[in-house]
């Protein structure tokens, strides 16, 4: 059965027949290595990132492409002017836009994100990805949720303090601004060609907040976010935090149909909770892939597919793959996922 990756993803999402489970292998900084340039230079141009993404996908043979440069790009759209680059790992935000609570009032949400200078290169990346792979491979965008975005603007420590201890008016004012930005950002990425919106929200997990807080504070903002953007192409993702305890609630309340698990979530439990109503994405503990042997990687994929493949509606994924993972292990992961994730009598059958 010849299918494109986009058709394969749609089939998995709707439980239609497919050749195999989709494979999302999230390689970012590895693109710089492909192009033989430092990370700072790589991330300075959308053309570099698009080229890196296309080459990596071609090289390893998985199913998705990313328009994400690094998470701090969102902070740049809101005024961040300093990113800390490294040679061996992802850039992170060095300048926090909100230094004290008075800065919240002056936080400026761009009127039109597509015209913001910080969006110019991601837009170029999306244009190229769409030109070369649009309609064939799902193009993913990473969008931080309203409740999690303040961590990029003021640091997780200060955001946690404001969120849990107030002052409430400052907290709510910041959330309102972040929601306004969130909606505009999703619109901009969709208009530029993103098929999949990874809705990134560590605060949507009870690893981060209590169930009581999740229900009273996090969930209402999730509902508001999703009411504004709809659930089409949206993936519920809480970083590496577990989601099984909230999966049923989010599915029932918000209606998101795709859930990207934590490596620490039980895949079998997630499948049972979803009960065929949603696509669940099993995620390998890719931090371990740095030191694992190829055989250990294959064994882990086997364990994941044994739990996830029965009943279909399953995707095999990674987290944000560290640059230190040997290429042989990336190949082992993709090969094993293609094999054990086959619906047509591969090694799994």
């Amino acid at each position: 059965m010849a299918m494109t990756a986009l058709q394969r993803l749609a089939a998995a999402a709707t439980r239609r027949p497919a050749d195999r489970a989709p494979i999302f292998c999230n390689l970012f900084d590895q693109g710089a290595r492909e192009l033989g340039m430092p990370l700072r230079e790589y991330y300075s141009r959308g053309a570099h990132v698009a080229e890196g993404q296309l080459r990596l996908r071609e090289k390893f043979g998985y199913d998705n492409l990313w328009s994400l440069f690094y998470v701090g790009k969102e902070a740049e759209l809101l005024g961040c002017n300093r990113i800390c680059f490294a040679d061996d790992g992802p850039p992170n935000v060095e300048h926090f836009v909100i230094d004290d609570l008075d800065d919240i009032a002056s936080l400026e949400v761009p009127a039109d994100i597509t015209r913001h200078p910080a969006f110019e290169q991601p837009a170029e990346c999306l244009r190229l990805l769409r030109q070369h792979a649009g309609g064939t491979y799902p193009i993913c965008a990473y969008i931080t949720s309203t409740m999690s975005l303040p961590a990029l603007l003021m640091g997780m420590e200060r955001w946690m303090s404001l969120l849990l201890m107030g002052p409430v008016d400052a907290r709510d004012a910041l959330l309102a601004r972040c929601h306004e930005f969130f909606v505009k950002e999703v619109e901009a990425y969709r208009a530029a060609g993103a098929d999949v919106i990874l809705y990134a929200n560590p605060f949507g997990s009870t690893d981060t907040v209590s169930m009581k807080f999740f229900l009273s504070h996090a969930l209402p903002w999730i509902e508001r976010d999703l009411r504004a953007i709809g659930t089409d192409g949206v993936v519920y993702y809480c970083g590496t935090s577990r989601i099984n305890r909230v999966l049923d609630i989010v599915l029932d309340t918000v209606g998101i149909r795709t859930y990207y698990l934590s490596p620490f979530d039980s895949i079998a439990d997630a499948k049972e909770i979803a009960g065929g109503r949603a696509l669940t994405c099993g995620v390998i503990n890719d931090a371990r892939m740095i030191d694992w042997t190829e055989d250990e990687v294959v064994a882990e994929v086997r364990r994941m597919t044994d739990a996830g493949m029965p009943g279909g509606r399953f995707l095999i994924g990674t987290g944000v793959m560290p640059l230190a993972i040997p290429e042989a292990n990336i190949r082992a992961f993709v090969t094993a996922a293609r094999d054990f994730g086959s619906h047509d009598g591969g090694a799994h059958a």
Binding site: S161, L164, M165, T206, D207, S210
Partner: peptide, 13 residues
């Protein structure tokens, strides 16, 4: 026990 990050933060705070 499924203690969460917010509980850790508040315990310390």
């Amino acid at each position: 026990f499924d203690a969460n990050l917010a509980q850790h933060f508040m315990t310390a705070q």
